[in-house]
Design a protein around this nucleic acid. Structure first.
Ligand SMILES: [Mn+2]
Ligand SMILES: [Mn+2]
Ligand SMILES: [Zn+2]
Ligand SMILES: [Zn+2]
Lengths: 126, 126
DNA sequence: TTTGTTAATGCAACTAAGTTGTATTAAATT
DNA sequence: AATTTAATACAACTTAGTTGCATTAACAAA
């Protein structure tokens, strides 16, 4: 189930994403709110916001969980799937508005794909 | 550093991959050899075989580690990078011999990409 | 504005994947 | 057979994430 009550924890997490409008790792969120929100609560708030289609999650390198704002999702429509770009220098992750073409695979039924592109980000290229 | 001594543990792990010629998760390997090889040793053997270019590793769903045999890699040449296909029914992972085209990303330097395609495998399609 | 309901929280304890340190063992060399 | 040291087993640890439960605070209704 999604968010029902606009609690302090929910507002703090939402504001973090509103302020940056980019992907943030759960580890980062747990750490930056360590004196304001309990670790378990951070996980549960993120979980509910994902249910609501407000945030979407994915795995960065080493399999750690990241969240980023959704564009046009809702409780009943989760269509914000796209590749992500992780910088090998600074570690930051961006959502990419590009389409990766997955080739036809004989005798297989493709449902989706998780794509994590790695390289140097815009800031670290200069 | 890679494998220097052909130990029992190394042979057991190598035979597992020779017998199946497909990706095996570390969790699976640790479990199936639980009475023959210590967990730590499994991790270290896999690590060394990867150094040698005998195996390559990647992350499946939920970020757990998988290993699969390399085709043409060696200690000094690790070029076996390709997408993987994980079945949402049976969980098995295959290495794919297809090329995924990563589009040009302005102001970014692409170094590589981790692609995990999900869907129904050949066996589970029937 | 008080009161009642229960979603949400905090806390502690737990799980699971993976890592580290170290004494011991067993490959490979002499 | 003796020597060397890579590799192993074991225990203890780390880290990300989860679970159970008593307590708290949204928020609606009185
Ligand atoms: Mn995204
Ligand atoms: Mn592979
Ligand atoms: Zn960067
Ligand atoms: Zn399958």
């Amino acid at each position: 189930m999604g968010v029902v009550r606009k609690t302090q924890s929910v507002n703090l997490v939402l504001n973090a994403f509103k302020a940056e409008n980019k992907a943030i790792s759960v580890i980062d969120l747990v750490d930056r709110f360590s004196d304001k929100i309990n670790k378990t609560t951070v996980y549960r708030v993120l979980d509910r916001l994902e249910d609501d289609g407000v945030l979407h999650s994915f795995l960065g390198v080493n399999g750690i969980k990241w969240y980023a704002p959704c564009k046009d999702c809702s409780e009943h429509k989760h269509t914000d799937v796209h590749p992500h770009f992780q910088c090998t220098d600074c570690g930051k992750i961006d959502c990419l508005n590009v389409d990766i073409i997955i080739p036809k695979l004989p005798n297989r039924e493709v449902a989706g794909a998780q794509v994590l592109i790695q390289g140097k980000c815009e800031a670290c290229c200069n």
